[in-house]
Design a protein around this nucleic acid. Sequence first.
DNA 1: GATTGTGAAAGCGTTCACAGCC
DNA 2: GGCTGTGAACGCTTTCACAATC
Lengths: 231, 231
Amino acid sequence: MAGTRRRIPEATVARLPVYLRILAERFESGVSSMSSEELAEFAGLNAAKVRKDLSYLGSYGTRGVGYDVEFLVYQIRRELGLTHDWHVVIVGAGNLGQALAGYGGFGDRGFPVGGIVDVDPAKIGTVVGGVRVRHVDELAQVVHGRNISIGVIATPGPAAQEAADALVAAGVTSLLNFAPAVISAPHGISVRKVDLAVELQILSYYEQRRATAASNSLRAVPGERGRGASA
Amino acid sequence: MAGTRRRIPEATVARLPVYLRILAERFESGVSSMSSEELAEFAGLNAAKVRKDLSYLGSYGTRGVGYDVEFLVYQIRRELGLTHDWHVVIVGAGNLGQALAGYGGFGDRGFPVGGIVDVDPAKIGTVVGGVRVRHVDELAQVVHGRNISIGVIATPGPAAQEAADALVAAGVTSLLNFAPAVISAPHGISVRKVDLAVELQILSYYEQRRATAASNSLRAVPGERGRGASA
DNA sequence: GATTGTGAAAGCGTTCACAGCC
DNA sequence: GGCTGTGAACGCTTTCACAATC
């Protein structure tokens, strides 16, 4: 009971955290009920999409009324597996790794840093974001000690695949890759990638496009958007 | 001439930076020609997708041979508007802003930090990543002084919309939002969002799913993947 | 009267498969 | 013979529109 949910589309899974943040915030503000229309407004989406997304969780709304905020928060948390904290281990204690560990955003949102490892002897033993850097050879120990299933790759690009392999060997089953490199992992391991430079390059494309469009004619810029917009 | 390209699908635009990084790296390694098959291998994609993506740039391949690496690097750079550096301005000099400024990844990849601003008087004047923090009231000056069109939002969530408004008012036309909040911007402004916690929550979903699937039955876990995989 | 939940339609993006070219 | 470029098929996602329900 409860575990045998029907599969939720990936696009929907990616939006659930957004709904969760909004609903939790509104609940803190004393709001107890919201319609798909309101939620859509806050999320920068349209109401139909919100309703379809929420319908994958079950029929938790009330027609004519809307959704109970507290109940929905609970349901989304449960569906996302956020009923407990998930410790993460960071591989790479360079600029990026230090930045990620130092930035409190992980722990605050239920993903405390359970360990940081590096290969550089000069970094071993230093403390970053309150956590002592250990040698990458101790990765399996760190992973088992804290029961960690999520690894964060914050190495330089060329070392990323090695880091991924080490994480998988240590027993991690999800990878969040910040290194500028494509990594491969065995089937069954979840991999997600965040590349700051790629995001900027995408923005550059639209900037460049705007610029050439403007210099080629005096007509208005055609309707484009990186993602999300309105006002 | 050259500006009137046909529109490139967003999904393709998001992959061009990946091809570019791989091609540039292979070129450095002395490789002068690559097939769609090889490029796909490096990018963790399939050859058909690579060919379709590249076909939006023009017919730059040679049948029976492949693509000229140097030429393709040049074409992708040009299409993405990476023929010159784009200075960015960071709003928010807290943990996240400092981390982003300190992490050299922006400047290295053609997006030097042209300024950082904050509202907190205690932070004004401090130097982060080699750049002096200025007051947010000087935003327009910073933007015009360096001819900046990309703004990076690194404020706490509640201040993100205000930051976006200030950036747009100062003349910025692209926004990269790291704050955990949905922001809205006038039509014609490109907005992209990176939320570290959201990425982790998505991984959490698949972890949780794996866990309940395993405890509910002894059958193998059905084929799921966060994104990318193989090997 | 208001708002959900959902089939059906429309729109995008991916993959196939092969003609066209080197 | 090998590899690109692309129309056509497929599948996933979004949007529409309305019956069901409070």
